[in-house]
Amino acid sequence: MSMLGELRTIGRSRRGRNDEAHGKDDKAALAFLAPWIIGLLGITVGPMIASLYLSFTDYNLLQNPGFVGVENYARMLGDERLWASLQVTFTYVFVGVPLQLAAALLLALLLDRGLRGLALYRSALYLPSLLGGSVAIAVLWRLVFGAEGLVNSFLAVFGIQGPSWIASPETALSTIITLNVWTFGAPMVIFLAGLRQIPRHYYEAASIDGAGPLQRFRSVTLPLLSPIIFFNLVLGVIGSLQAFTQAFIVSNGTGGPSDSTLFFSLYLYQEGFMGFRMGYASALAWLLLIIVAAFTAINFWASKFWVFYND
């Protein structure tokens, strides 16, 4: 089971068969879990509470935080750069994630079982997803989509003169979406593993019943793969809401041109670590947490209508 499946199971059977009531290994568990518990309290839960508190303060790291009530949250309403950053981030999520997953699924289907050269293709397609998060690739992207970069040099062969994709506000975000699609290898590998678990005789039975390739895809592959699509979707959305590195490098930390690549986490970084408005940045962080939680909750809710669990 994936971690989402686990959460689903735990959530459903709140008081399941309980071997934990005895707690016969309590002492040993405490020892084995000691690092995790210290980390959870000291580095996760503690800071969460602290950031919630800081979000109600005015804090610049030098002076003590001063309580300002909901002022930071009220300020959000009139903060145009915040709204710009939300628009950029949501566009990235709504366009980038489906494109990436579609590419991943399509290629996984092409690669499935018994294809000659499968391992080689898989490696070629998977490699970019390991490199994609690095500064080096973001640097490369600046030059690929620059005024005289790879893309325009290629277009010039056909007599087309392309714009500087990075420097114009209309296209800058799409270059970063392209970078995200380029890293479809990771979800593709997950899809491949999922496709392998679909028993072959399902397809054979469908074939005997006269189902063509498209219908077999619709009535066998898609339903049986839906938990994995769901997994990739949830993690893809969560990851995309937090995207940072590519936007930072491509725009040199500005989120430009004209805030067209001002991702939410980039704006949070600018407010907190360049402007030293730590109180406001904490409020932004909590807004992000709420957004991530809301997206995940909606995903889980919507999964009832399309995800098929074979259990």
Binding site: M3, E6, L7, I10, G11, W36, L40, I43, T44, G46, P47, M48, A50, S51, L54, L61, V234, L235, I238, L241, Q242, S265, L268, G272, F273, M278, A281, S282, L284, A285, W286, L288, L289, V292, T296
Partner: peptide
């Protein structure tokens, strides 16, 4: 369950207090 949820927690919510700490 708590452990699984922390996998999905955005680092941004923690980074400022962590920085202070």
């Amino acid at each position: 369950a708590v452990m699984l949820i922390t996998i999905m927690l955005p680092i941004h919510v923690l980074i400022i207090p962590q920085y202070v700490l």
